[in-house]
């Protein structure tokens, strides 16, 4: 019973969303605002049960690790964000959590730059590897802004544009695919779970 009611509600909300295709209307607006509320309302109990209880409450109050009172208080400082006078206090927890960017510096360099560089230095022994090499170098030089694109250099960097356009084309094709997949998913729901036309 609840299952059926659920499916009908879901179908109704799906149609509300689709009604935006005709034009912006109260049904769509209702669904949109409902979505915002439900998503946030969903977040609170989850965080409470799965994060606050095991990580903050239990160690401090049940295991009595009293040193954790300090981060507990720092966490509370987030609340000051909404006071116009003391909003600067909330910078302390933000700053504390920002400390981790330090790790991002070498790790990003390592994973996103150096590892990629290593793979770029493969021996040029096949046509594809040569193409990848030329493409990557020419794109890097295209985004090198300290020299004007003129003469042979300009010609070389314009190769980069061709490579990029093919790459963007691939993304474009895939993006089209993604959007259509989402629609297919919704239609599968409407036809299958709701109307029972597909089995």
């Amino acid at each position: 019973m609840t299952e059926t009611i659920g499916i009908w509600i879901a179908a109704f909300l799906t149609l509300c969303m689709f009604s935006f295709l005709y034009k912006d209307n109260p049904f769509y607006k209702f669904a949109e605002h409902l979505f915002v509320g439900v998503s946030m309302g969903y977040y609170i109990p989850y965080t409470y049960y799965n994060a606050f209880i095991p990580y903050a409450y239990e160690p401090l109050f049940l295991k009595k690790e009293y040193i954790l009172i300090i981060p507990f208080i720092i966490g509370f400082l987030y609340w000051f964000r909404f006071s116009s006078k003391y909003s600067w206090v909330s910078r302390y927890p933000i700053a504390f959590s920002m400390g981790m960017v330090g790790m991002g510096v070498p790790m990003n360099m390592h994973a996103n730059v150096l590892v990629q560089m290593r793979t770029m230095m493969l021996p040029l022994n096949s046509i594809n590897i040569i193409l990848i090499f030329v493409g990557t170098i020419s794109i890097l030089l295209y985004f090198f802004f300290s020299k004007a694109h003129k003469g042979v250099y300009g010609k070389f960097t314009s190769i980069g544009v061709w490579f990029m356009m093919v790459g963007f084309g691939a993304s474009f094709g895939y993006t089209v695919m993604a959007r259509i997949s989402l629609l297919i998913g919704r239609i599968q729901f409407l036809l299958g779970d709701w109307l029972g036309l597909i089995k």
């Binding site: 730059v113 560089m117 770029m120 230095m121 040029l124 170098i137 890097l140 985004f143």
Partner: peptide, 17 residues
């Protein structure tokens, strides 16, 4: 930094080839 990457990579590729 990009210029440095390009120089390094070109050098590395010549060596590995």
């Amino acid at each position: 930094m990009k210029l440095l990457i390009v120089v390094t990579v070109v050098l590395g590729t010549i060596l590995s080839t």
